[in-house]
Simulated assay, not measured.
Amino acid sequence: MAVRVEEKSNGVIVLTLVGQGEPNHLDTEALLGLAETAKTLANQSGMRALVVTGQGANFCGGRVGKKGLTRASDVAEDLNAILKVNAAFAALPVPTILAVEGLALGWGFGMSAQADYVVAAENARFALPEMSHGMPPLIVLSYLFRFVSYKRGFELSLSSREISAADAEGYGIVTSVVPPGAALAEALRVADFVAAQDPMSITLLRKFGREAAGLSDPQRSEYAVSLMSVLLAERAQKAHG
């Protein structure tokens, strides 16, 4: 199971990411399951806010893609799981509030960037480690520059370095920073506040706000997938002789 769903009495839904190992990695099937869960919730009446947190000590240590794919079309299908999650969460009628403890790497970093509100513990660490594995994080870059400057985003992608929750707040990735262990409680407090507002006003605020900020560009994300799929397929072909 990629995600646990808990429904609160006031319309707040809590999704807990259930990944692999201590870093809480999510594989392709887990991402597809998460996308389906988000699509189901989008049609659920009575939902007022969505809180997403991670199982254990870490929010998410990143995505684990399928191995040994040598055809660009197969790599693209694997990468498209990320786009399906992004699209499903973007289509939600309520705000997404993240509670981040520990690691938020790769896909976890991207999820943090796209969320409407992010509460991070002081000891949380954010990074785009893809380049340390020889792979540019193009999907994240397809929307990252809505939040951070080009030079900052380029440097974070190039270096793969981890940044603190305080730095992530300063860069515009995180909304607020709380003591270790307190992220979920604060995220639930924010969700309770959202749930107490007029539902239609909240939906319009989120929808118009995201459109005005230009947070969604499916064509650019699809272009990122096409570029990465060719690169990774060629690399796999060389590795297989």
Rank of each mutant, 00 (worst) to 15 (best):
L50G: 09
P95Q: 09
L227W: 04
R63E: 13
S45R: 15
A57M: 08
G153A: 00
Y150S: 02
D27M: 07
A191G: 05
G170Y: 09
C60V: 00
A57T: 09
V194E: 10
E155M: 04
E234C: 11
V5K: 05
L69E: 02
R152W: 03
F193Y: 02
A115D: 09
A187I: 03
A236Y: 00
S201Q: 01
G170P: 09
K151H: 05
E36M: 10
P95M: 08
V119H: 00
A239E: 15
A166N: 11
A91V: 04
R152H: 00
V100C: 03
L232H: 10
Y143C: 03
V3D: 08
V178G: 15
L31A: 07
H25T: 02
A115E: 06
L26Y: 11
R125L: 12
M111N: 12
S157C: 14
A165V: 02
G102W: 09
E77I: 01
R63Y: 14
L32H: 14
H240Q: 13
Q20R: 14
E29A: 09
V85T: 07
E155P: 00
E77T: 06
N123Q: 10
A104E: 08
S157Y: 09
G209T: 05
A196P: 03
L105W: 07
A166E: 14
E77F: 03
V12D: 01
A124G: 12
